[in-house]
């Protein structure tokens, strides 16, 4: 299937479900190295996005992503709000008025999302943040698209790489965000932001199946 408005809405819906299902797991991850509100914040943010999308159904993928960005930034509360909000906003801008997101445009959108997260959070790969999920995801997506992959293959490559990237944050010592206050003690725990990022990118892949 093409990556159209229907796919976008399915992606967001599956993301919301994933946040609900993984709420307590994200809370547990965040309790270990943060302030244990990530699961609750993300769940509330995506519920707010769902409500907005239901109120005024968007007509393009970009419009759906922009509404989600607004909802996340307005209702998440913690740093994840502006970070994910900017990611969705920049992805929306990259997609523009395209009704169907081709693989190369999808890669541009993912790259723009990563750029937004980096611009807002000033984190680099290896800092034990969501950047560690998004960076390999963008690289894998670009490679898959360059190899002529179908949209669903590009998305699967991104999701797999994000999951691996999130898992790889476990031994890292945090250098950004709340977990960085813990220094060495942050090692041995998976970063909750990287984990929620991996879940969102997994939802994107599942929505294309």
């Amino acid at each position: 299937m093409g990556l159209d408005t229907k796919w976008t809405l399915k992606w967001l819906e599956l993301s919301a479900e994933a946040m609900k299902e993984n709420r307590s797991r994200l809370i547990d991850l965040d309790r270990a190295i943060g302030d244990s509100d990530h699961g609750e914040n993300m769940d509330r943010g995506f519920q707010a996005a769902m409500a907005k999308l239901a109120d005024a159904p968007p007509e393009t993928p970009a419009a759906a992503l922009k509404m989600t960005a607004m909802a996340l930034m307005s209702s998440v509360g913690g740093a994840a709000g502006p970070l994910y909000g900017t990611a969705f906003l920049r992805a929306s801008t990259a997609i523009g008025d395209a009704a169907d997101v081709e693989p190369s445009l999808l890669v541009d959108a993912l790259e723009a999302a990563l750029g937004g997260i980096v611009a807002r959070g000033k984190a680099e790969p290896g800092d034990k943040t969501m950047v560690d999920a998004w960076t390999p995801a963008v690289e894998a997506a670009r490679k898959a698209a360059d190899d002529g992959g179908l949209p669903e293959e590009v998305l699967r490559a991104a999701a797999d790489a994000a999951a691996a990237g999130a898992e790889a944050t476990e031994p890292l010592v945090a250098r950004k965000g709340r977990a960085s206050y813990l220094g060495e003690r942050s090692a041995g725990h998976r970063d909750p932001g990287a984990e929620s990022s991996a879940l969102i990118l997994r939802a994107a892949a599942e929505a294309a199946l």
Binding site: A69, M73, G78, G81, L83, L89, R120
Partner: peptide
């Protein structure tokens, strides 16, 4: 603090 600055930056971007 921290995320207030991020929210302000995002709002300016929006």
């Amino acid at each position: 603090l921290g995320s207030a600055v991020m929210t302000a930056e995002s709002a300016i971007e929006f």
